[in-house]
Write a protein that binds this DNA or RNA. Structure first.
Lengths: 120, 120
DNA sequence: GGGAAAAGTGCGTTATTGATACTAGGTATT
DNA sequence: AATACCTAGTATCAATAACGCACTTTTCCC
């Protein structure tokens, strides 16, 4: 007999809320863009389709979790610069593999999805 | 002068919907659990806290995208077995790094979040 | 003074998650 | 034979999160 299948991934593991907060399309893309410190609107311009609202929220979450730092620049119209922390850098590397995987496989996935949708 | 910051990540890239559909806590955990073909309730038992509703939806999405296969077993009470496809295997490997990163860093992240919340 | 860029905030709607309950066929229990 | 439980789901409703769009405020340029 096979051994009893036991619970492996516990509901109260601290990784659960972290996965919920950090693992998202926009978190991924923001980190990808932050190869060097960049200002709010620079990031926004490079991430086609993101709104200010969503970018602000995403940056707050990343800041709260220690992935990016937020620094106010005393420039003429005041500026805010976001930069990766070391922990943010390490997450960016992991996200990079995921992004690369997605780009590598996206046409296969699209084809598979269309076939699935055809047969109901 | 630095070169003009151009749009890097286009909104109409096919990776966008795929990231939205596949990148989630539950997709990750389901793939982690599927080291071998498993039945619906076995998966459910091993993923503490997932509801039938969410597990069904997650498995459907993974099936639609070609990450898992669904096979009906002609057993006494009918059974359904889910298994990774080769593409699912490759995604599981990428997800594994992300999961490992999260577990490695979760206590640091919790501490950082608590400090952030304290200073408003 | 008009217009634009900076970095947001507010509000209202939609979409997704989640909890809870229910279904239906079969089996083991008493 | 009735009860209870396992199988793999649906259905329904409430709570939460995401998103779109408009608005703000300060400063600069013309």
């Amino acid at each position: 007999m096979a051994p009893e299948p036991l619970t492996i991934y516990r509901a109260d593991c601290p990784s659960r809320p972290i996965l919920d907060q950090l693992i998202s399309k926009w978190s991924m893309l923001v980190l990808q863009v932050l190869d060097e410190p960049k200002r709010f609107n620079t990031i926004k311009r490079q991430l086609d389709g993101i709104t200010q609202r969503v970018l602000t929220e995403t940056l707050r979450k990343l800041e709260r979790s220690g992935m990016v730092t937020r620094r106010v620049l005393e420039t003429s119209p005041i500026g805010v610069e976001y930069a990766l922390t070391p922990m943010g850098q390490s997450l960016k590397m992991v996200f990079s593999s995921l992004y690369d995987w997605t780009v590598t496989n996206m046409s296969d996935i699209e084809t598979t999805q269309q076939a699935y949708d055809l047969q109901r």
